[in-house]
Simulated assay, not measured.
Amino acid sequence: VIDAETPRPHHDSASLRLVNLMRMLVDDGAHVVFLPADLHHVEGDTERLRHLGIEAWHAPFATRPATWLREHGARFDVVMLSRHYVAAEFLPLVRRFAPQARVVFDTVDLHFLRERRGAELAGDAGLKRAAERTRDRELALIRQADATLVVSPVEREMLTELLPDARVEVVANLHELAATGLPFEQRHDLVFVGGFRHPPNVDAVRWFGSEVFPLIHARRPEIRFHCIGVAPPPEVQALQAQPGIVVHGHVAELGPYMDGARIALAPLRFGAGVKGKINLSMAHGQPVVATSCAIEGMHLSSGHDVLVADDAAGFAEAVLRLYGDAALWQRLSDHGRDNIARHFSLDAARDTVRRVFLR
């Protein structure tokens, strides 16, 4: 398995998915080797992989990827390359030094789709052209790979139309159900979780903080909005000037916010893939208010396991309604956990993982 860097499952959902995927392979008897393209050792996270039984490499033991693959390529039955920019660099090396191996391209999400939607939201022709260049690169890699992984049926259907001969499989986010935390009456406030190196998260928090939260604060001034995620930029930090908004940055332990905040938010206006922030909250029994974009491909329906709104007034109204309705809150909590068990658990993915990697 080759990804851009060592996965950090406490920092982002893509890392959690990758670690759980490798865990599943180890549990099924595979010998799993992980190489980060940046060759960095990450204290704690590299060791975590080894504790799971994964052979984790880094500098100075691996110095150049081509040299490492020349030495080790003959060992592998399957090589998985994560993200299009990693796959573009490594696929030729794998074909040269591990010609016997099947190549699996893990898109993580379709980058071109996220970029295109961001360009449309911004009305930026330059960004749209860049998204089309990414599209060309991703589709070329899908043609060259023996199998491609996407995280949602929506993305699989899109690729099936574009490349009907490609083998495309869905391996969604992978989560384990957590304890349900505090009951409705003991929970307070709103929480958003998402790393800010990801542009859709920056846009989402800016939109919610500037256009939605003031409507909530005007009616329920005791409600606070907790914003959690690595590397909040100045425009996100500046939202703290508004009463009721707290920007925490990275927190070492998310548990208190999953178990104690009453509602999780996913106010994304563009993006692709499936949203780990939604999975994480639902795995903890924490109901979610989201946009249509945020729940794409996640087997969710508004009023059953999530509340959905796409304009500022509607989003604020959904938050306030859920915040004050214990019966609705419990119903969404229960159905959200059912959604995780049915579509985003390790058991739900096991047959596909075995079919792609072990047969």
Rank of each mutant, 00 (worst) to 15 (best):
E176H: 09
A74E: 14
R96D: 03
T67P: 08
Y323Q: 10
E222D: 14
H41W: 04
S345T: 14
L322S: 06
V26D: 07
R355P: 06
L91P: 00
R350L: 05
E47W: 00
S302Q: 05
P232Q: 09
R143F: 01
S281T: 06
P164S: 07
I228V: 03
G255T: 10
D136V: 06
V274E: 06
P214E: 15
I223N: 07
V154C: 05
V288Q: 05
A218N: 09
T6M: 02
A318I: 12
E157I: 02
V353G: 10
E176S: 11
P36W: 00
D28P: 08
F270R: 06
G118I: 11
G44L: 08
A179F: 11
G336F: 03
G126N: 13
H40T: 09
F357Y: 04
V288D: 11
R23L: 15
L93M: 15
D310Y: 14
F61M: 08
S292T: 14
I2Y: 00
L190T: 08
V151D: 15
T352N: 07
A341M: 13
V191Y: 11
L320E: 15
F184Y: 14
M282K: 04
G126P: 07
A312V: 13
E138G: 00
L320Q: 10
E132P: 04
L16I: 02
S301N: 11
L174D: 04
